[in-house]
Design a protein around this nucleic acid. Structure first.
Lengths: 205, 205
DNA sequence: CACAATTATGAGCAAATACTCAGGTCTTGC
DNA sequence: GCAAGACCTGAGTATTTGCTCATAATTGTG
């Protein structure tokens, strides 16, 4: 007998084209609404209204409100993981500045559309065990990779590479989230340059 | 005729000792509850329960839920402003590293108790015009001061001091918020050292 | 002690909102 | 062209929660 996980799985797997289309509409609308109103004020009825469907349809594809936000978050995390892997797969004999630049640029790019949503995702996302683990895992991987990079690269001159790696990953993540979604957004080119400069000079000592 | 601002002012000014004591209890309880459950799930009934008073008493001193969180935020901002002023008033002919250290240490210290609350304050605080302006003002002052510092100090070698100042203030604020409240909190001494090192090396070029 | 002002109480109201379900409409396969 | 299943609808339900108000308890004052 299958375990009781009905509350997380969607009610129906879409089998017709219009169904998949409805699903997409819901997610797109949810991204907008959550980004605009935050999680609490982003009501399911508002999402359905924006998507141009009825509230009933929404609950045919998502068992509850959390599941919608969870799926948006998972998508973003998968994007981030893909970017990180891509960077890690490339050859990395060049100066550490170039490696930092690849990371920072990738991170900035993945935050350009829907910047407000992403802050909501990470700041107000319900602390449901499931997705939070995924967040932690991705971050731990990033920190671990960063630490190895610091350990191996000849240019690097910091003593505590563990703390340094954590600081670097945290800084890049937070600053990008904040400044991209800011009221008076910075020029992303400048942001990239300055952030890369800060990180590079830091590890060079 | 006085404008209709009854909804923001507390219902009563405390005139007896026990009243002021009740007010404090409410704020202390609210700090705990908001820090533990977040803003939305931090219900007024829960706050009253934790404070050991009735829900009615709570609404004798605060006109609504937002006002409680607003007062907590204002208190924190005033603390921050006081620290910033104190640092700015001191003589600053020394190396820029020492100035950064004063700032960073002050910021870390003011986040040591109730670190979770502070994240809630800045991340989920309702965007009520009133308090948000205070936040923006404090931040603008900090950025302005930092920029002047960068412009004047001989050690500094960054081209765009405006962007640099913004990056520095944002970085310090966010990283401290994040890492102090983290699941596996960093050693604050290490955090101070590494953060100061990063900022210093950045502006020295 | 009297009695007025201040403070405390908590059951309950009104509004918001996540979610259901009984019954429709559209698509598909034969 | 016609069932059968897939999809959609939206008024309504159950619950949560911010907040009120009539009443009671406590404190200050003469």
């Amino acid at each position: 007998m299958p375990s009781d996980q009905r509350r997380i799985q969607p009610r129906k797997q879409p089998r017709q084209v219009r169904a998949e289309l409805t699903r997409q509409r819901i997610l797109t609308a949810a991204a907008h609404v959550f980004g605009e109103h935050g999680y609490a004020a982003g009501t399911t009825n508002r999402i359905a209204e924006r998507a141009g469907i009825s509230i009933g349809s929404l609950y045919q594809y998502f068992p509850n409100k959390d599941a919608i936000l969870a799926e948006l978050l998972v998508r973003h995390l998968d994007d981030g993981a893909a970017i990180a892997e891509r960077v890690q797969r490339e050859e990395l004999p060049g100066p550490i500045e170039e490696i930092f630049r690849l990371f920072v640029r990738g991170a900035i790019e993945s935050h350009l559309d829907e910047p407000r949503l992403l802050r909501v995702l990470l700041e107000q996302a319900p602390k449901s065990t499931d997705v939070l683990e995924k967040v932690e895992l991705l971050k731990k991987n990033l920190v671990a990779y960063m630490r190895q990079l610091l350990d191996d690269h000849p240019e690097v001159r910091v003593a505590d590479t563990e703390t340094a790696a954590r600081l670097i990953v945290t800084t890049a993540e937070l600053v990008i989230h904040q400044l991209v979604a800011d009221h008076e957004p910075v020029d992303t080119g400048k942001l990239e340059n300055e952030l890369v400069a800060m990180l590079t000079r830091y590890v060079r000592g």
